[in-house]
Amino acid sequence: MSLLDIKIGKSVKIVGFEGGKGLKTKMTRYGLYPGDIARLLRVAPFHGPVLIEVSGREIALGRGVAANVQVESI
């Protein structure tokens, strides 16, 4: 299940990043690690990015990125 498969307002646990080492490096650079709890706040229209909240910070992730963030329900 990826970040694109959950409903707005739902909290999930990030379990991993797909799509090569590049994305993982980028996500950890922004302080996002497997094990973090993310809440989906908003989804922009026109196939736009998603907005998640992780420990009080709001981070926008483009569709391509969000599709590669693997999550599980908590």
């Binding site: 981070i59 992730l61 391509g64 990125v65």
Partner: peptide
């Protein structure tokens, strides 16, 4: 292959 947008939304 662009990873796409990762952008922190400031308060």
């Amino acid at each position: 292959d662009t990873p796409g947008l990762i952008l922190e939304m400031p308060t």
